[in-house]
Design a protein around this nucleic acid. Structure first.
Lengths: 209, 209
DNA sequence: TTAAAAATACCCAAAAATCAGTAGAAAAAA
DNA sequence: TTTTTTCTACTGATTTTTGGGTATTTTTAA
């Protein structure tokens, strides 16, 4: 079985060296290079085959999330594992959406890295424990500040967010536009916001929409 | 090693029976019951220990995403695997955020189900192949629909989303409110929407805000 | 069954947003 | 340096929203 050609992309050369050392003992992995910028890795993969890329989010020229997309565009079969210190869920989700096969924090154990690599080469998506916690956790936070909306209110909120005016909503629901105005008013009050722009924003943050 | 106590929640009894049959041969799994509603499973777990719940999204009384949260609130240690036909990424992401440990489509193979269960009991999050494709595939919105915004437009968009009116924004940026109106108009045009509600919604979906 | 919550509908007035344009100045790109 | 884009600002008319209320009916829950 041929070794997995692995590239490391990180703006800190020390991190690259550390990873190289850690992976030196892995039987099925061969580190083909360390790269400090998005530019570098993109130009490398245009001429060389790479099976796995360990990718940081913070890079000098381009952010790792977008780089993900570009790498995948250049080479679909290359597996990307994010190795980052960023703990925001939005970033994690974005990378996965952009084609990454996993996300690990930099303090992950070698075991976790090994496991994620093996899962990833099988076509799975794999997160380190700490990342799973992040993904699973914030729902509580967001749920607490969430006002309880009635069925009608949720329905109308969605229609407002779709850009419909009170008149239109009234027509579609066979209600008086004045009723919709009342619901709109109540929504704005429940969320403690000033207008629909802020309302839609808040509803989005609380994942109601 | 004790068997994993497994509950099946689905509004179609046939699906429950099918799963029971499929899992009958599994050495480490014992199906403790099939439940047709959120109510049923919630009342069951209040008095019985359950290790794994195979959960459908479509249920008569409550949707599976919210049920996830409620189950986790009632019993943190219970592992939830979603078994659904819904293929929208937003639903998949939502369940994971609400504490599910995996998501499989109903046409998944038993092998996949087995693999996901074993990953899940180890504390990992696991998706079936088809689901990974959905997660990885960038949505139409994201591929084409993101308009290029100027610095000023981004700035003003954020302020609009914060619920500020043109007057207020104008004051804060030392610009005429009429200028802000123009920017607002351009934003609405660039996004191809009708008003700020839809604008904020679109900006959120495209992760600009 | 009775109380509470939700859904419905209205009034008035002020504030804000939307539509449909034009247009000069400044900054960035070619 | 020229061209293009961005940023700025305006007119004027119309529509919509927002803020302050009230009030009846229908559901839902205790």
């Amino acid at each position: 079985m041929p070794k997995l050609l692995t590239a490391i992309v990180d703006d800190h050369p020390i991190v690259i060296e550390g990873l190289k050392t850690l992976l030196r003992n892995e039987e099925n992995i061969e580190v083909v290079g360390g790269f400090c910028s998005g530019e570098d890795i993109l130009s490398y993969i245009s001429t060389h085959k790479v099976d796995i890329i360990l990718l940081d989010i913070t890079l000098p020229d381009i952010n790792g999330m977008e780089l993900c997309l570009m790498i995948k565009k250049a080479s679909v079969s290359t597996i990307i594992l994010i190795l980052s210190n960023h703990t925001e869920r939005s970033i994690i989700m974005q990378t996965i959406q952009n084609g990454a096969s996993g996300y690990l924090l930099k303090n992950s154990s070698v075991d976790e890295l090994r496991h994620c690599i093996s899962e990833a080469v099988q076509g799975n998506i794999c997160y380190s424990k700490a990342v799973i916690e992040i993904i699973s956790r914030p729902s509580k936070n967001e749920l607490q500040g969430t006002p309880r909306l009635t069925r009608r209110e949720k329905e109308i909120l969605a229609m407002i967010a779709a850009g419909k005016t009170s008149q239109v909503i009234g027509q579609e629901l066979f209600l008086s536009p004045l009723t919709i105005d009342t619901h709109r008013k109540n929504l704005i009050q429940k969320f403690g916001v000033k207008n629909v722009a802020e309302l839609v924003m808040a509803a989005n943050q609380q994942q109601i929409l």
